[in-house]
Design a protein around this nucleic acid. Structure first.
Lengths: 343, 343
DNA sequence: GTTAGCACTCCATATTAAAGAGTGCTAACA
DNA sequence: TGTTAGCACTCTTTAATATGGAGTGCTAAC
């Protein structure tokens, strides 16, 4: 059987109405709400066909119909209106935070959660490989030393090191020179024993300080737990009765606490299932490949700060989420973010 | 009327039983569970007295009794057994994170949530006043500059500044010298126009760079949003039926998302209502002074990293929380933390 | 191809009934 | 005077039972 124009229109009405109300949609409602001028009986015949084709189902006999995943997929792929969403311009507000990526991303998550009424998560930027670009130690007061490392992705780490020896101005210069010439451009695998020995040899008496600095450098380079995830609006789950069957919601809320789990979600959402809109993907129900989310849908987008430095934004809601609005909002926000990152 | 030994024993049984089950406690249960060898009728008489004295109430006629806030207060103040809780020694695990306070505190929150089954929050260390202790700019590559500021509490801030002018080695030294001599020891109120002008005058041609550095310094000094709050186990609220009346829990969960709100809770809990145990405070129901928490209790403790640098740990659960365990666990953890911070 | 009509199904809601838990009171007992 | 058994009473919880409504599927007529 083929999807006639009329069937599509009816399906669309079912989906839209269900998105709004969350209740199964009956034939009479459609008969009244469309401009097709058909009686409920005719609609019933068509609905019967649609059910056979797998686009809608009845939760039980003598109930209205609700859309299946297949219907949502069709809706997202072809039926989304291309409406321009008026996203309150938060660019200015964001720009003022641009210096501190973490604060900015937190803000982004909040903004999306408030605007869409769904749960939102944003993963912090990931870097491919990390190398030492610049390293420096400076005395701060009589018994502490400030060590600063800049990585090639311009991430800066610093730490105050306590020392119990006095380092002369002159030695300090020398140490800095050695550290920079030897370590510059190395990643963590390059920092082997040979390198370390070579530094210590040159450094002479200050091996202890070198040790501390190297340890710190090692941490900065390997540190994987700097993978930050910002979430917002998790309580929005409670707004949707079909999700708040308690045990399920609890699991979702738990996942939002255990940020690591969220990262798995985002990772699972690889580009295998893109929708048409440039770099925004929609996953419906089981398409998320995550079992706890089988009753949810997820919309993700990838932001890019610059080459090789990217992160993900995700919005999670019930399957009957307002895809239209979510996609538009996200799209609009991405444009604003792009502009900000260009500077 | 006075609280006889027997009444106390009965009250204690009521509280204990209610803490466990969450159900109103009837006279027969008590008659069986105590070693008083009294019939339920006698217990009923005593309970009638206790009700009159305000320690217990009936949710409705012909139901058992449940403790009032007054009873909990008495329980916490006098009836807590001084049992030593076997807190799994996480000191080692924590020690490895001691370098990064934020990670450590996050861990503490998680540990407590898991061990107590209540929601936990930990506020990051607060500092009294902040002054500039050390400031430095260094070239990183041809068009960027690394600015580092160390505050008197040893907090370090850094930022990469983009520049479009070339600064000679010599000028760099001069700028650093000026910045340090003029700004050292100043707090944000001291950095007035006069100071700024004086710096710029001395700096000569590099006013632009100075501007950027000063702005950053200003941010570092005023920044109040570096107040971090770590939470864990918020979903534990859902485990207690008396809290999960949905609308109320939602509000609590919301508060846990909006970390700023939590801070207000912690601030509201000032030392006005301490219990006997050294620096651990228990707030029951309305004692929290926060309306959304009138059905909860909160146990807080103050940790101190060193003089003037402190933060708070709080555990929130239903009024019928296991005070005994919570207080002991917290106490034990505080000891372990103290040890760690001593180094 | 479309529509009106009708029997049927299932859910949601209200009503009623029954069972259980617990109290308060009274009267008897040590 | 304190303790206890017994009993009537209250209120909640649970189950069982109606009742109404929404919606469908089918048939027959247009």
């Amino acid at each position: 059987m083929e999807l006639s124009k009329r069937k599509i229109k009816i399906l669309q009405t079912i989906i839209r109405t269900y998105l709004e109300t969350g209740e199964p949609v009956g034939s009479r409602t459609i008969s009244k709400d469309t401009d097709l001028n058909l009686s409920s009986a005719t609609i019933r015949n068509e609905m019967s066909d649609l059910e056979e084709m797998g686009y809608i189902i009845q939760p039980h006999t003598s109930a209205g119909r609700i859309p299946t995943d297949k219907a949502y997929r069709l809706y997202v792929d072809t039926m989304l209106a291309d409406k321009e969403v008026e996203v309150q311009n938060i660019k200015e507000e964001l720009e003022s935070k641009a210096g501190r990526i973490d604060v900015l991303l937190k803000q982004v998550a909040r903004f999306l959660a408030i605007n869409t009424n769904y749960a939102t998560m944003v993963s912090g930027p990931r870097y491919k490989s990390k190398k030492v670009k610049f390293i420096q130690i400076t005395p701060v007061d009589e018994n502490s030393l400030l060590a600063v490392i800049v990585l090639d992705n311009n991430v800066v780490r610093n730490q105050i090191l306590k020392i119990d020896e006095i380092i002369e101005q002159e030695d300090m210069l020398k140490l800095n020179f050695i550290l920079n010439t030897v370590l510059n451009g190395l990643d963590v695998t390059d920092m082997n024993l040979a390198v370390i020995r070579s530094i210590k040899e040159q450094a002479g008496s200050h091996a202890k300080v070198i040790d501390a600095v190297l340890e710190m450098a090692g941490n900065a380079l390997t540190e994987d737990d700097d993978l930050q995830i910002y979430t917002s609006g998790a309580t929005n789950f409670l707004k949707y009765p079909e999700l708040s069957s308690k045990s399920e919601t609890t699991e979702l809320l738990n996942a939002f606490e255990e940020k690591k789990i969220i990262n798995n979600w985002l990772e699972a959402a690889e580009q295998d299932n893109g929708s048409e809109t440039h770099d925004i993907q929609v996953y419906i129900g089981n398409e998320t490949k995550v079992d706890t989310m089988k009753d949810c849908s997820m919309v993700t987008a990838t932001y890019k700060i610059h080459e090789g430095v990217y992160g993900k934004i995700g919005i999670i809601g019930p399957k009957r989420m307002d895809y239209d609005k979510v996609v538009s909002t996200l799209q609009s926000l991405m444009t604003q973010l792009d502009d900000i990152f260009k500077n």
